[in-house]
Amino acid sequence: MQRRTLQQSGWTVELTAAVDIPAEAIQWIWPSWLPKAKLSILAGAGGCGKTTLAISLAATISRGGDWPDGSKGEIASNVIIWSGEDGVADTIVPRLIAADADLNRVHIIQGRTDMYGNRQPFDPAVDFPLLHEAVDRIGGVSLLIFDPIISLIRGDMHRANEVRQGLQKVVDFAELHDCAVLGITHLKKGGSHTSVVEQIIGSQAFTALSRGALVAMTFKDFETRVLVRAKANLSIDSGGIQYFIEPVSLHDQIEATCIRWGEIIEGSAEAIFEEMERSGISKPESALDEASRFLVEVLDAGPVAITTLQSLAADSCISWATVRRAQKKLGIRSCKAGMQSGWMWELSNKR
């Protein structure tokens, strides 16, 4: 059987001379830091305040405020936030209030509903297309935050093809709605890497598809932190800003945290990172150390069902294989509360 060529099928390649394509300037939400119509990544180790940083950016956009480097903000506009790790009422909203956000312009994704009013959880990997109509309903959006961005991936976050498939719809969304998309993620535990960008967890496709990568770092005293531009396809990939996380007491005895910005720091992300190391930066703990600390904290009050531990470990992005290694390291015992009960783990010094 003779195969049909592409020409025979009626398809042709469309070519346009470059002279006929008008040049366009890059548009920015935060000049040289957060581009419009593009995907960006915000990464950091535990304790860096990634979510608090993102909320600070959201608050600035919602009220049309100026940026921490002195750049002038645009007109106040809408922000959409999806969080799979923090409570909305007790964490996200108090932090928005502490950051002086216009709460009328910040919209939280809390689920999906059908025509009959039935409500279900929002699954970013499956339900993302529903956001197009939601954006039109609120009159547009300037920033969409996903925390964590790996929730958009249905398969293995270490497989480039699966990551690209999951993120392409986000890239298309950003371009269609002319908004910035900021995905929050973690840094790899331990190990040595040639660049700060290579420390971002998951497949390299995360940073390949994003047009910028911001990385949060912390000093050993955990008081002074730095936000750096680790990758910037559309501007210079250097420079950083100091920031501090400060507690805030709101009304009704509600406690929150907010960002206080500090000085501008010059240099590449790697140079800033090396300087912080010489100054005594605390490197991220190893995966085994993190899992060990996790088990001690969870089991301190008594035995916990293995199924519960598995769920808590997954929520904390700790692999079960590493948890099992930590179990052996700490000498944690398996036990049963009764013949009809499932297996539990307990610390060896709790009996």
Score class of each variant (00 low, 15 high):
residue 331 G to S: 10
residue 66 D to S: 15
residue 208 A to H: 14
residue 291 A to H: 09
residue 272 I to G: 03
residue 256 A to L: 04
residue 260 R to L: 12
residue 88 V to T: 07
residue 304 V to K: 14
residue 146 F to T: 00
residue 165 Q to M: 12
residue 142 S to D: 15
residue 118 N to Y: 09
residue 107 H to R: 09
residue 252 D to C: 01
residue 191 G to T: 00
residue 10 G to P: 07
residue 281 I to T: 03
residue 57 L to W: 10
residue 22 P to R: 08
residue 25 A to I: 02
residue 90 D to M: 06
residue 21 I to H: 07
residue 23 A to C: 02
residue 240 G to N: 07
residue 63 R to H: 13
residue 194 T to K: 13
residue 145 I to G: 01
residue 335 C to Q: 11
residue 123 D to F: 12
residue 166 G to K: 06
residue 316 S to Q: 15
residue 10 G to Y: 04
residue 86 D to H: 01
residue 221 D to A: 12
residue 162 E to H: 09
residue 187 L to G: 03
residue 164 R to F: 05
residue 161 N to R: 09
residue 28 W to K: 02
residue 87 G to V: 12
residue 187 L to N: 05
residue 280 G to S: 09
residue 318 I to H: 11
residue 344 M to L: 13
residue 194 T to L: 08
residue 220 K to N: 14
residue 107 H to G: 05
residue 176 L to V: 05
residue 83 S to C: 10
residue 83 S to N: 03
residue 278 R to G: 08
residue 115 M to T: 11
residue 84 G to Y: 00
residue 159 R to I: 11
residue 310 Q to L: 04
residue 304 V to S: 06
residue 144 L to H: 02
residue 105 R to N: 13
residue 47 G to L: 08
residue 350 K to D: 06
residue 281 I to E: 07
residue 60 T to H: 03
residue 195 S to A: 13
residue 287 A to H: 10
residue 152 L to I: 09
residue 199 Q to C: 11
residue 150 I to E: 05
residue 258 C to I: 00
residue 140 G to T: 07
residue 104 N to L: 10
residue 299 L to E: 00
residue 304 V to G: 06
residue 80 I to W: 05
residue 221 D to G: 10
residue 259 I to K: 00
residue 78 N to K: 12
residue 149 I to E: 02
residue 53 L to C: 08
residue 136 D to T: 13
residue 15 L to W: 08
residue 335 C to G: 03
residue 213 A to D: 06
residue 254 I to V: 15
residue 205 A to N: 02
residue 222 F to V: 00
residue 129 P to G: 07
residue 269 A to H: 01
residue 349 N to S: 14
residue 213 A to H: 10
residue 36 K to S: 10
residue 59 A to Q: 03
residue 337 A to S: 14
residue 329 K to T: 04
residue 37 A to F: 06
residue 29 I to P: 04
residue 83 S to L: 08
residue 92 I to S: 04
residue 326 A to H: 12
residue 313 A to T: 03
residue 24 E to D: 03
residue 201 I to N: 02
residue 237 D to E: 13
residue 298 V to D: 01
residue 266 E to P: 08
residue 118 N to K: 14
residue 125 A to Y: 08
residue 78 N to Y: 06
residue 89 A to N: 12
residue 217 M to E: 09
residue 349 N to E: 12
residue 311 S to F: 10
residue 160 A to Q: 11
residue 334 S to Q: 15
residue 298 V to L: 14
residue 162 E to R: 03
